[in-house]
Design a protein around this nucleic acid. Sequence first.
DNA 1: CTTCAACTATAAGTATGTTCATAATAAGCC
DNA 2: GGCTTATTATGAACATACTTATAGTTGAAG
Lengths: 224, 224
Amino acid sequence: MNILIVEDEKRLANALKQILLEQKYMADVVYDGNDALDYGLSGIYDLIILDIMIPYRDGYEVAYELRKNKIETPILMLTAKDAVSDKVTGLNRGADDYMTKPFAPEELLARVKALTRRRGEVIIDEADFGDFNFNASTSTLTKGSKSVHLNFKEAEILKLLIANRDIILSKEDIITKVWGYDSDAGSNNVEAYISFLRRKLNFVNSSTEIKAIKKVGYRLENKG
Amino acid sequence: MNILIVEDEKRLANALKQILLEQKYMADVVYDGNDALDYGLSGIYDLIILDIMIPYRDGYEVAYELRKNKIETPILMLTAKDAVSDKVTGLNRGADDYMTKPFAPEELLARVKALTRRRGEVIIDEADFGDFNFNASTSTLTKGSKSVHLNFKEAEILKLLIANRDIILSKEDIITKVWGYDSDAGSNNVEAYISFLRRKLNFVNSSTEIKAIKKVGYRLENKG
DNA sequence: CTTCAACTATAAGTATGTTCATAATAAGCC
DNA sequence: GGCTTATTATGAACATACTTATAGTTGAAG
């Protein structure tokens, strides 16, 4: 899956690329409207993430030109939170969706997923690890007949741990991915949630453990 | 858009049909697994909402048979909340998504929308009424440079009011659609939220009013 | 044994949703 | 028009869920 990121703020552009690469998307980055148009017109992308406030041509114009040239690539527009939104109202008619900055990585990924979903593709977001099952669409952690509901942050962290079962996740990783790239959450926030998660894993009698590797991070481990 | 509802609990089946018809979907209802298969095999549906616990053949079997017969219609499975979910884990591989009962109409509609979305179709959920703009994907109510965030219930009610701009919505309607078909919320719940909404409309200096029609319901009105 | 990272209980903060009591308002009646 | 009554409006209290912050405890490595 190929994604074009159009964003002049380098820090954000890199963060976006990072987030997408980790989810096995391919991502290219350009920093202004002219390049955006060049790259976009190639038609090789499955999605274009397009900031509105960019040099040379703004996002609206890029979207408009692409559509005029019969490029049907889905466009996810990014707007600043304080931007006057009636401008948006009338103008973003080339976009398929948009979101306001700043945003949490998960929100971005959900939208990217929706926009790149192919007909017939399964939505169910259910994962197994060790002896438990985690249903992301209902945020329910189950083992046998026991279930608990996970709240948002617990669920995000558990999903991360499951997705990265083979590598050790650092607290910084977790903060960046769950709290957001510009969050100021501290490491203890992560520790607290890890603690909540362990309690719930324990509650459903799972034999899976969240192992802490000192000074490095966390990893799921399946004792059994 | 054609939807097949497979649900033996009549009350729920009717509620589902109601909800869908109001959103301009076409909906047929059948009450058991045999009929589900007959109807489903016709291939005329864009979506099948399939309860698991139904007479003759359960939902899993229906889904499996459909897929075996090359029917690619998206399937949204319904499960009871207390159903043992590891059964689900292994078996629902014919389904595209599923949700647990009971659910709020909006959750259903969101999933239906996702499953029936066509490539290139716009997701942006933004509505204008009178002088304000409401962005459903960020739950933001805006007029000019002023914005407020609406919480879930406020947003749902406002969406309802906008969508039904020409008719008067009764409190019962609102309860059914926002709180759910089996909710026991009272009319004052609605009144309270209407009050919150008016305060927020006022905060952004909108000249739009939520007009109360005594003994009947509410309607948006655009003074200006 | 000491030290530092990790752990966890608990409290405080924030957002949301519900309920209750009372105030305001409109409609019907004299 | 005033009076009565039913309905709606609203502030405040209450309840709950989630998140963050504080601080003391535990435990492993050196």
